[in-house]
Nucleic acid binder design. Structure first.
Lengths: 163, 163
DNA sequence: TGTCTAGGGTTGTTCCGACAACTTTCCGGG
DNA sequence: CCCGGAAAGTTGTCGGAACAACCCTAGACA
């Protein structure tokens, strides 16, 4: 399993992908932090909640969808709770369960942060590619995700919905 | 600059790309940490040095190539120096300059870590894609990098070397 | 040559993420 | 009905990253 090196074509692609992995998160994070005072992860948490029924999600499910550990999520939610962007509550079904729910100002914060974020995404990714390349990237990321997330822990959100 | 939302096709691709950005770094990091006791960033630093003349690089240049701030790099190099994987030295040209050089055991550490890392990359990325997709990904990442890193701070490493 | 500004690195503080231990609740078996 | 193990979250601790303040050297200009 060792001496299968990469040929120059594979290597070139990989190196560039590495560079993208290195640069893109920082750019997204910087924009959100600057314009909205939110970490990219915090924004992602709020965005996930905003798309959920009742704008509320169970901690463990939210953790799975954001690819976070439960302790990490707990800390982040505590911080967001301190800023009154989310609130914790409990359901009647399972007393162990804790839910995080978006507050009104949290909902507002997401809506205010979204346009700038989308614009950043658009500028650095979408607009950099042709329509054809965008479709190709869709296929490519889908293929990669079958390896990266075999049992779809992140939720079926990104799965193809055609036949 | 706000109400240009993403259509469903763009959104689907973006969401999946986000998922990849979220998952891939963690996977790479976990493998290296587990098998080699190195952070992905540490590995990247060592790899950069290993490909440089004299296996030595100026701190500021190394920082640029690894997309790190100078303080961060300084700390990391200090740690690696404590493990005797790199050493600092000074050149005759500029007394302000500090160079980081790979030690013999550092060189050995990279060579031992590389195969497992390559195998991980191969399994999660290369082998997940067809040859055609790999080429497409090469073009796509190149196009993205023109936006993400306009002045090629990361070094010309990943630039196309054809005409 | 003395000073002044800018560039190059290191050190200190603060904040965030990973990991481990702990508490509480659910559920199965005696 | 009670007990033991597993699951869900929270809290505490430690290592690592971002940011700012600081020190030193190089080069410019009077």
């Amino acid at each position: 399993m060792d001496d299968r090196w990469l040929d120059s074509r594979q290597l070139a692609t990989w190196v560039r992908l590495t560079a993208v992995l290195e640069l893109l998160p920082g750019i997204l994070d910087a924009q959100l932090r600057r314009d909205s005072g939110l970490t990219h992860f915090e924004y992602y948490v709020l965005a996930m909640l905003s798309e959920s029924p009742e704008r509320s999600l169970r901690m463990s499910e939210l953790a799975a969808q954001t690819n976070a550990t439960l302790p990490r999520l707990s800390h982040v939610v505590s911080r967001l709770e301190g800023r009154e962007l989310v609130e914790r509550h409990h359901g009647a079904d399972d007393a162990r369960a804790t839910y995080a729910r978006l507050t009104e100002s949290g909902w507002q914060a997401v809506r205010e942060a979204a346009p700038g974020h989308v614009e950043t995404v658009r500028h650095h990714v979408i607009d950099a590619l042709t329509d054809e390349q965008l479709d190709q990237l869709g296929e490519i990321t889908e293929a990669m995700l079958e390896r990266l997330d075999p049992d779809e822990k992140l939720g079926p959100v990104y799965r193809r919905h055609d036949s």
